[in-house]
Nucleic acid binder design. Structure first.
Lengths: 184, 184, 184, 184
DNA sequence: CATGAATGAGTCTTCATTCAT
DNA sequence: GATGAATGAAGACTCATTCAT
């Protein structure tokens, strides 16, 4: 074992580059260079570029899902659980901006691939919303609720990424209130 | 007649393929075949693939911007203008799904390229929102308002594209109300 | 059309190199260099190396089969047809030594691939032999007869190729007599 | 015990794989896996893949030669020695099909390499044939005799390998008669 | 002696672009 | 204006060989 954690380092470098430049635009050589090894070495750890691509999606998709799922369960009232879920969402975005960008990339570039994975992050939110509607707390069509929830938070993230909004200016409490007001 | 509008046909075919498969995944040969010409002929109308890519962005970005801008001006009250803008947004999405998907691709894959263009569709919305805030009608931070507006509508579109929401079920009136409630 | 008959020239060069060095040992670059083009150009004419490999097998396998089949039908007596078939075999070998070597390569390297092709050269001989046995002219098990016929002639060819026997010393008449004696 | 005879086990595994898939198609990793060791370990026993390739040829070429040579000497009459040699040939083929296929591979893929080795199996037969001709027992040109002898037996083997002839149906006595009739 | 990570030189294949016709 | 053959620079992947452990 010459390098330590090479597999992990490859995944990390891949995520970074994929989210920065895109999947097709990132070559195995780019990844190898970022890690500090040669192209061939990558293939000792992964059978193909596709394995890296899908492996990363699976890993972060599950991680995000679990974070959201936990949040949907933590809190005394429905509203608190709702709030915690928006927090968890925003929190994941900003702690793993590369991962979040990467996951979103799939909506546009590889919608077909997404179908093979479950559960997906949105499923956690979906369930939360359904529950809110069943209890009469949320008052809008569930698809609209999902769109407001996910769409708004994703855009907040993109505005920060684009430099149009400062990270420090992101006030989770306020954002949660806005979404809550829209749906209830 | 056959050779007429070849440039337009190339753009149309490119948009279709780019939005379906991605830019990198679409070759000049693919485009030529879709148009019914040969590879070399494409280069009689465009200097490079990049010219097509950016040309398309410019064209639809401007078209979308203009549609939105007009909408922000048409209506007696601010609320009506706001409503008309959401309608114009949704309307553009569903009439030009390829173009909308294509424009969004740039947020993830080529954020740098976007900066060279102005005005961008969001600028029209941005102005509308600023105005609403100045007049005390909208009550939230303008970045949040933009996030809710654009994020929600984009997600509605994506849900339809993904088959999770039927086009017929999209009720503009209701959606406008939700956004309006969130921001006012 | 910059070069003439490029496709044909690729096939010719491939056959030559494959039969000299083996299929795996011959690269697309080797072939391109032999033809006087670049690697990429090969792919305008063939989708893959495999297409060249199998295409060549099919082409010469059929040609050889047809030559043999015609020979099995030309002649008044069975013996004369038999003789003509040995002549046709030897004749094909020496006129197309590359092709013959190439076809034989498949017995050792790609026996599986052979199964997908029919008819094969040996089928023509097989039928001739069966007929001879049915008529009571040939007196040995048909598999043995095939082995003597094909094995002997192939070895004659290999001895010439190896420089152990001069082409001019190959006396078809005599060889036919030997085989005939063995089987009748 | 496990590490014992590793060299032999590598050779055995290599022969098996080479004869099944071809030399180029067999990787050091394949061989190592078959033996149950790792790639690096192979290089503790052999300096290169080429050393294995040639080592195997040498080993089995000599073994086959010796078997044939012994047979050419065992028997009271020339005819009996001739018969025993055909038996020895067939016997070697069927007891070591991998080795026989492997040796034959060289006729097509690496004729140059063969020249460096002597004696070769055919030399034993060559001498037997020359003797038969000198004694006036065999009546055909010696090259033809060699072709009939070796070609026929090799083809018998290939027919069995291809599943076109059952091993049980191979009657050495009869085959020897056919060859003898052809040459005497 | 053995491991298996890493190297580096290929190998097949793709594709934007050029250019002779 | 159009064709499609050819170029040339990459890109994904392979594999014999080396080497740190």
């Amino acid at each position: 074992m010459r390098g330590k954690n090479t597999k992990e380092r490859i995944l990390k470098a891949s995520l970074k580059l994929f989210s920065q430049k895109g999947i097709r635009e990132t070559t195995i050589k780019d990844i190898a260079k970022e890690v500090g090894i040669t192209e061939g070495a990558v293939y000792r750890h992964f059978e193909s570029k596709e394995e890296i691509v899908l492996g990363l999606f699976k890993q972060y998709s599950e991680e995000f899902y679990n974070k959201l799922l936990n949040a949907t369960k933590s809190g005394d009232s429905y509203e608190e659980r709702f709030k915690n879920t928006t927090k968890a969402f925003i929190s994941f975005c900003f702690k793993n901006p590369s991962a979040f960008k990467y996951l979103n990339l799939f909506h546009y570039l590889r919608p077909e691939d997404i179908k093979h994975f479950s559960p997906l992050p949105k499923d956690a939110i979906w369930n939360l919303i359904e529950e809110g509607i069943d209890q009469g707390i949320l008052k809008v069509k569930k698809e609209y609720a999902l769109a407001v929830f996910v769409g708004t938070l994703e855009r907040i993230f993109l505005l920060v990424e684009a430099g149009l909004l400062k990270k420090e200016e992101v006030n989770m409490e306020e954002i949660k209130e806005i979404i809550w007001k829209a749906l209830s």
